[in-house]
Design a protein around this nucleic acid. Sequence first.
DNA 1: ACAAGTCTTGAGAACGCTCTCAAGATGCGC
DNA 2: GCGCATCTTGAGAGCGTTCTCAAGACTTGT
Lengths: 351, 351
Amino acid sequence: MARVRKTVTIRDVAEDAGVSLQTVSRVVNDGPNVRPQVRDKVRAAIDRLGYVPSLAAQRMSGSRSYIILAINDRERTLADWRERLGTDWVDQMLLGGILTCSQHGYRMMVELVDTHSDHVERELGAALSALQPDGVILTPPHSENRLITQLLAERRIPFARIGSNAPGPGIPLTMGDEGAAHLAATRLIELGHRRIGMIAGPSQYSLSGWRVDGWKRALAEAGLPHDGLLEVGDFGYESGASAATALLDRNPDLTAIIASNDQMALAALETARDRGLRVPDDLSLISFDNTPIVRFSQPPLTAVDQPIAETVSRAVEQLIAREPDGDNDAVIEVAAGLVERASTAPAPVRA
Amino acid sequence: MARVRKTVTIRDVAEDAGVSLQTVSRVVNDGPNVRPQVRDKVRAAIDRLGYVPSLAAQRMSGSRSYIILAINDRERTLADWRERLGTDWVDQMLLGGILTCSQHGYRMMVELVDTHSDHVERELGAALSALQPDGVILTPPHSENRLITQLLAERRIPFARIGSNAPGPGIPLTMGDEGAAHLAATRLIELGHRRIGMIAGPSQYSLSGWRVDGWKRALAEAGLPHDGLLEVGDFGYESGASAATALLDRNPDLTAIIASNDQMALAALETARDRGLRVPDDLSLISFDNTPIVRFSQPPLTAVDQPIAETVSRAVEQLIAREPDGDNDAVIEVAAGLVERASTAPAPVRA
DNA sequence: ACAAGTCTTGAGAACGCTCTCAAGATGCGC
DNA sequence: GCGCATCTTGAGAGCGTTCTCAAGACTTGT
């Protein structure tokens, strides 16, 4: 029936509309200086033929590529794929980005890179050359990876650094980590808790430090000490369990824990349960991230809602709007909120 | 310091190596008929300059685009982004596909399309024209969307239909739904259950039917009736709750339920709990999909492990290998397994 | 009515690559 | 050592767009 259709090119449209190819291009790109009458005629032809410009050809002739690249760790991604999905936020980032790109006629691609070795430069460089993206999105911890940011700066490719507020090239965006931690700790203090433990993330993430800062500030404001109340994990389940164990061992009077991500909070929950502690009656728990998983645990966890998707969305919009060499002084901060669920309650009254 | 570097093109390499541009192209594409000595010289130049071919240019001159497109429902994706992430399998599909594409030098792009309206043709058509992907991956229910499959067939774009075994264009892949449901039901029968309810998915998904078939077959083999034991949901939480309620109301002797996805299973779990039923002591529960979420519920759910990532991976590989017009008679079936967790136990002994 | 703009349009080059085809180099059989 | 086949190399066209620039059509002011 339908003959094998050749691709409809701008030339076909030009012919059909009886104008030059250049005029069609102008119409497609909403260019100026086209008589309304001609414009309509061309538009009609475009509709009739179902013409859509080829991205490859557009890219070839110097325009944008309409591609935003998101860098991900290959190794990490593999692990996520197997088991961490839904407890981590790669996917929220992904879909948030894809959606926003789609709304602006862009596409998001995920580039898997071996970010641990010094292959980074080669691998990322190759991707940049092959794809020529209009922008790149970096998430923690890549946002603070010098090899990566330098390469991008050198190539003059606009990029966003999520979870980084350092000066330097690239648009910095944060999710108000300090404030969010402060909010969480303050809430616990309001509930009467005096000994509030913190399971921090690894120190190579700036946001780990910010969260600790916010927690400390809240304690200080209430005149509470923070001695022996800090443990550091690596965002993994196991590390969360050991950290919780250490905190509980060291502080018999502990009544609340803030964990720097959902994984570790879930681990703390299990740990508490194993020790015969009831959550929230004996121990209150607040986690960071609020990935979907925490709604289904028993009890559902109170969590700091990191607006990941929205932040990525903002990043995409910045990248699209931004001139390649624009200044990016101001840190864009997307505020996080606190979602109260059943893992927090007033501090128990000790006998 | 570093001067704004112009993109390294094939021409630069040719010049550097002292050969023609065409020779470089041959080396890059592992073409035949190049003297080893020349090949090495060119390779050296490529390394020295850090040359990587531009995908856009390659595409322009008729070669592949190295893009695999995954079609997703825009509306659905938005919902996932907000709250369903991690309880659905969009993300597993995504990362599985991205990983496999990456391994073969391809990229996966997600195209959001309004699959409900008749805009499909226009929207999808535009994406195909713009991107000119080498292959398209369709997941349920899009795999069985006539408008979509016809458009793809017409354009001669290789595509994979996941969760569809119907004849026709496109590579069909299934995840052994009938067998998996049979396996789940059989396991429950082994545990002594005689009244096993089924919460099916919506009928427009073929796989909903297959799962019901497998369940029925297992019951029949054990000489058990299935009267009043079937309820249909829409894969959403609410529908799962109503279905579970209906099943339990109607069958006081019910001791087990198979739910056609994790969402609905989780809903059934809550419903049972609300009714004072203990899982698994009073009621055993098996879900489909085995998304990460079911490991963290209380109790963790026994689930049919749908090998989604692997299936998508297989699909990608097929698409990459396949000739545009090759025959795709054989259905590729990736087998599902059963992961036993704490939501299944021997049937209770009634007084 | 004429010069000097301003709008509108189109011709041609360029982007970076691969394809086709022809020419030169090399090898083989006798 | 000659003719022919094969291997290796390169020149040129073409892919579908946008950019530059020049030419023609219309305005406007006097």
